[in-house]
Nucleic acid binder design. Structure first.
Length: 296
DNA sequence: GCGTCCAGGTCTACC
DNA sequence: GGTAGACCTGGACGC
């Protein structure tokens, strides 16, 4: 079955899909030409289905195997709209960068929509797995979670595990099987608290808390510090945190500071003029060269 | 082969 | 509130 969705005028499929590393982490997959994003999502009855998402005219199309009923189609469209940020209003951001010669490319290329998982829970688990380790280890931990706890779709690909599935496993599983090391109790505690209803990360999407308070809420999760919380803030649509990490500091030094180490305060000053959008301006600035203007 | 460093940080104890 | 030290893993690097 094929589902077509129209997209906002300045939506850029490849800039969104390749906006950060999530497209490389299962159950996301990006094909070599970067023209198709594959993703396993769960239907309303909990069964996994593999979607193939690609550009089609002025919108996108979603290919799903077999027949899909109306409720399933609605869930698929909701998940895809959520993942690709199709309902995010970027006009404020594009206004903030307008007139700045170094950033005018952002609106021209439709950059700034950051790919996210269908659930905040999945984003949070993955974010914890990015802390204090190489990307290769993040990939390995995430793949173990999906392969060991995800449910198989018809083609053998697996969904991301639910909070309940993760909560059923002991902390030792995350240490010994997922190889999460000291993050193991953090993953267990997060899964337990979400599965029990004590914490509801999905509510952060519509939270009316001021950014600073929402960030404090996120940091109550063990294993979530400034870097992880500020990255999570971006994924729920708040962009005033810079989420500085070793990669950003290194990249800024190379591209904006003549190769010299820059202090965090200097990085903050550089993007301060973008106000509530400074975290997104920084991210776009640091990742502009991931793609050329033709999307290659 | 072995030791060291460190990567898309965070927590805790201590001051 | 600020900071030093500990913390898992695994790839890269030097020897």
């Amino acid at each position: 079955m094929e589902i077509k969705i129209s997209t906002p005028r300045q939506f850029n499929f490849i800039r969104t899909v390749f906006s950060h590393g999530w497209c490389e982490l299962v159950p996301f997959e990006l094909n070599k030409s970067r023209s198709r994003l594959v993703r396993v999502v769960e239907l309303p009855d909990g069964s996994p289905v593999t979607l193939t998402i690609s550009r089609a005219g002025h919108g996108i199309k979603i290919d799903a195997p077999g027949r899909i009923n109306r409720a399933a189609a609605a869930k698929i469209e909701r998940d895809v709209r959520h993942m690709l940020r199709l309902d995010d209003d970027m006009t404020g951001y594009y206004s903030a960068v307008a007139g700045n010669a170094e950033f005018e490319w952002v609106a021209r290329e439709g950059a700034g929509r950051l790919l996210r998982a269908p659930t905040v829970f999945e984003d949070m688990v993955k974010m914890i797995c990015t802390t204090n380790c190489s990307w290769a280890l993040t990939d390995k931990m995430n793949a173990a979670l999906v392969n060991l706890l995800g449910k198989p779709a018809a083609d053998g690909r697996r969904s991301f595990p639910t909070p309940q599935a993760m909560a059923e496993m002991p902390a030792g599983f995350y240490r010994d099987e997922v190889r999460a090391g000291y993050r193991a109790p953090y993953l267990k505690e997060l899964a337990d608290s979400v599965a029990s209803g004590a914490v509801d990360p999905e509510q952060w999407l519509s939270s009316e808390l001021p950014a600073a308070e929402l960030k404090r809420e996120m940091k109550k999760i063990k294993g979530v510090g400034d870097y992880a919380a500020e990255n999570m803030m971006r994924l729920v649509g708040r962009y005033d945190g810079l989420a500085l990490d070793s990669w950003i500091r290194s990249k800024f030094s190379k591209t904006r500071n003549k190769g010299r180490i820059a202090s965090d305060k200097k990085i903050e000053r550089y993007y301060a003029g973008f106000g509530e959008w400074k975290g997104l301006a920084l991210w776009c600035d640091m990742t502009r060269d991931w793609l050329d203007e033709e999307g290659n």
